[in-house]
Design a binder for these strands. Structure first.
Length: 754
DNA sequence: AATGCCAGTGTTTTT
DNA sequence: CACTGGCATT
């Protein structure tokens, strides 16, 4: 075959994937193997060579941003606008379909989407309605159970209660689904579940969708869960022109019910799929790939892959030990400056990756201090701010007057003299009368059979009147004005001052509000309705709207960095209990293997420069904790690493005691439980006499021992933490409080009792 | 019965 | 440190 323009510059495997016959295709794509390219060209190929009309193709990506990019790349390849081409995440795609079809399931057209915070609030309200103790039944935990059930397509009536707690979950789950329906709302899980139910229940609609979508393509298939898998199956029937791309080594959404074994299942469920393996890496240096391979190789149940690159060896991986998280941030800053100066790498070509969102803080502070530009790819975004959620709740309630969560959020915000008791009385009444919220509020006008006192009823009605005037105002193009009215009429500005602890906070919140106002004005300019605005903001995250050329360093969790690539990458916080995270360790082998994949995903984002760092000490809140290093570090090939001699010596010692290929290695250097050192108390000895006597006994030994992880004072360098003891015990590595790491003679050290 | 203040408590990851 | 929930006050 002579080279088709769509196949220009591609290797044989990529070509095979793109030109595979119509039918099920499974592409197993290692990181950096050009899978996005394969997906976009496959779509173009379907349109050009198989004459599949573009509006009969559906592609699912993992983020909305990736969806946008994919669309523009296909459009560029074919040099035409493809408006009807359906590309989006599972959630936004289902939301879009349900906008049209939710009436079939009994929703009114103005249904809204609840985010996790909304769901949790509703569950909390239901727990209260049912008279359950919120301490025994934490709404958060119940929410997790319910959303897990939805991912597995388990309906309330099918929910198997294996414990007393589960029985209560089942009760709440049933009530929750009723309340959602009454509130005319769907949570994230409902978007997927309802779509699947619709396709199962309505023969007519199923046929419609199946007829419409000749071809279905899914990216990141290893991170699909049961309901997503079923959706793909339902939508791609009966012709089964389904093209999925995935990599079991990059499965990182187990907590959302995703199961990488769906890749295996695919082979069984679809007859003789074409299977293509993409192993040629175009992204990283060989060194980076070797390190990545060494890390992922420890996982069981995976297909071994042979990732290779023609990019050459590249530079060694930098390993850095920091005294604490601030020094870690300083290290990153320093390296960022160097990268910019000596390698002329742009800020936007640099990513800093960490395990938990809270870790961004140290970096943010350091970047602000140094006046270097950065942007957060994940974390508690703008829309999670209290003041934004409040105003959003007003807007949502205007749009959908049955939205209980929004109603309960704003009915007494700012304070209107309607407290917990009145609200619960009202809620109980609404439930017992089986009313929708808007009907109940209406009923207050003409029906005296309600539990509210005249005074409180008056307050309710005042609020209802306000709501009515705003609803009148909610015209297209008038969102900005509407916002102004709400703020003015509720005196929300005064409320802001009240809830703020200090001047700065009030200012910050006010700025957020004006930013929000700006967004509404922008929506007005582009002709968006309230409906458009609300839909978009639930399903889109900050990362989705980030411009490529925004020259700022990217700060991100491992999860949010997925799918992206950068010339320079920093992986930070490589400490035991952080990566792997302590909660994941508690989940056992599966949990740890997923953490290993997180590390792998992080490493394979890097093209040229990779930096690894860990901090000996962190201050999560109040006290501080001393950490061992991540067990994953023990797997790194020493000859590929570059770092200070002491750091490498420390690592070598760690490796010497670990059996790298097993998950069970247990040695103090890994094992060390993070000790929370309480803020100094009056006396070191415990106050409880019984414990105090034990304490005294402990203190007795004539020769206190030097132990790894214990504190000691040196006659010259002062206090420090023992981090390593050389064989023989004469020479000891100590991390001194002055932030230097030194090897000293044991005899010069005096151990301290903790 | 609502509001304001204080103490205790707790953190994985996201659509 | 920041948030939530309980308690005392108005």
């Amino acid at each position: 075959m002579s080279k088709h323009p769509l196949l220009e510059g591609l290797n044989p495997q990529q070509t095979a994937a793109i030109t595979a016959d119509l039918g099920p295709v499974l592409v197993l794509a290692g990181p950096g193997s050009g899978k996005t390219s394969v997906l976009t060209r496959r779509i173009a190929w379907l349109i050009q060579e198989h004459h599949v009309p573009h509006h009969r193709i559906m592609a699912v990506t993992f983020t909305n941003k990736a969806a946008g990019e994919m669309r523009s790349r296909v459009e560029k390849l074919l040099d035409s606008k493809l408006r009807g081409l359906q590309i989006g995440t599972f959630h936004s795609t289902c939301a879009r379909f349900l906008r049209r079809d939710a009436q079939i399931l009994g929703y009114r057209d103005n249904w809204v989407i609840y985010d996790s915070d909304d769901s949790q609030r509703l569950i909390k309200a239901i727990v209260a309605d049912l008279g359950m103790d919120p301490k025994e039944n934490p709404p958060r935990r119940i929410n997790n159970r319910i959303s897990a059930a939805k991912n597995e397509m388990i309906l309330p009536e099918q929910y198997q209660a294996m414990s007393r707690f589960d029985e209560r979950v089942a009760t709440v789950y049933a009530a929750y689904q009723r309340e959602l329906k009454t509130a005319n709302a769907m949570d994230f899980g409902d978007l997927l579940l309802n779509m699947a139910l619709l396709l199962q229940k309505s023969d007519e609609r199923r046929k419609d969708y199946q007829d419409r979508f000749l071809a279905v393509l899914v990216d990141e298939f290893q991170d699909t869960n049961t309901v997503q898998y079923q959706l793909v199956k339902l939508l791609s029937a009966p012709q089964q022109f389904v093209f999925v791309v995935g990599d079991e080594d990059q499965a990182i959404y187990r907590f959302r019910g995703a199961d990488y074994r769906n890749l295996l299942r695919f082979r069984k469920d679809y007859p003789e799929p074409a299977i293509v393996l993409l192993e040629q890496n175009y992204r990283s240096t060989q060194t980076i790939l070797d390190v990545a391979g060494a890390v992922i190789n420890n996982n069981s149940n995976r297909t071994p892959k042979n990732l290779h690159t023609s990019r050459g060896q590249g530079e060694p991986i930098a390993l850095h030990e920091a005294a604490d998280e601030q020094y870690e941030a300083d290290f990153v800053l320093e390296q960022v400056r160097k990268l910019r100066e000596s390698a002329s790498i742009a800020y936007s070509d640099i990513a800093v990756i960490y395990r938990t969102n809270a870790q961004s803080r140290a970096f943010e502070e350091a970047f602000i201090r140094a006046r270097l530009p950065y942007v957060l790819l994940s974390g508690f975004g703008f829309y999670q701010r209290r003041e934004i959620k409040d105003l959003l709740a007003y807007l949502r309630l205007i749009y959908n007057p049955d939205d209980r969560v929004s109603f309960e959020r704003v009915i007494n915000t700012p304070a209107r003299g309607i407290g917990k008791k009145s609200l619960q009385a009202f809620a109980d009444w609404v439930t017992s009368e089986d009313l929708a919220l808007s009907d109940a509020l209406n009923k207050l006008y003409y029906d005296d059979h309600n539990p509210l006192s005249t005074a409180v009823k008056g307050k309710f009605l005042q609020f209802v009147n306000l709501l009515a005037t705003w609803t009148e105002m909610a015209q297209p193009g008038g969102l900005g004005d509407l916002f102004q009215h709400i703020v003015k009429q509720t005196r929300y500005d005064l409320h802001l001052e009240k809830i703020s602890q200090h001047e700065d906070e009030a200012l910050d919140r006010a700025q957020n509000l004006s930013e929000f106002y700006g967004m509404l004005m922008k929506a007005d300019d582009s002709g968006q309705t309230l409906h458009d605005f609300l839909d978009e903001r639930t399903l889109y995250t900050t990362a989705d709207s980030l411009e490529e050329d925004d020259d700022k360093v990217r700060l991100s969790t491992f999860h949010s960095i997925k799918g992206l690539e950068f010339p320079a990458v920093f992986i930070t916080g490589l400490e035991q209990d952080n990566l792997p995270h302590r909660n994941a360790i508690a989940e056992g082998k599966e949990g740890i293997e997923e953490e290993c994949r997180l590390f792998y995903v992080g490493i394979t984002r890097a093209e040229d420069h990779l930096f690894l760092s860990y901090a000996m000490q962190r201050r999560p809140f109040g006290g501080s904790s001393i950490n061992g290093i991540s067990r994953f570090l023990a797997d790194l090939p020493a000859h590929l690493l570059d770092g200070s001699p002491l750091t490498l010596a420390y690592l070598r010692q760690a490796r010497a005691v670990a059996a790298p290929t097993q998950w069970e290695p247990r040695h103090p250097i890994f094992e060390r439980q993070p000790k929370t050192i309480a803020p100094p108390k009056q006396s070191i000895a415990p106050a409880n006499p019984a414990i105090r006597s034990q304490f005294a006994a402990f203190k007795a030994p004539q020769k206190p021992m030097l132990r790894i992880g214990s504190r000691a004072t040196h006659k010259q360098f002062g206090g420090g933490l023992v981090i390593g003891i050389d064989p023989g015990g004469d020479i000891v590595s100590v991390s001194f409080d002055q932030h230097q790491l030194k090897k000293v003679f044991a005899e010069d050290l005096t151990p301290l009792v903790e």
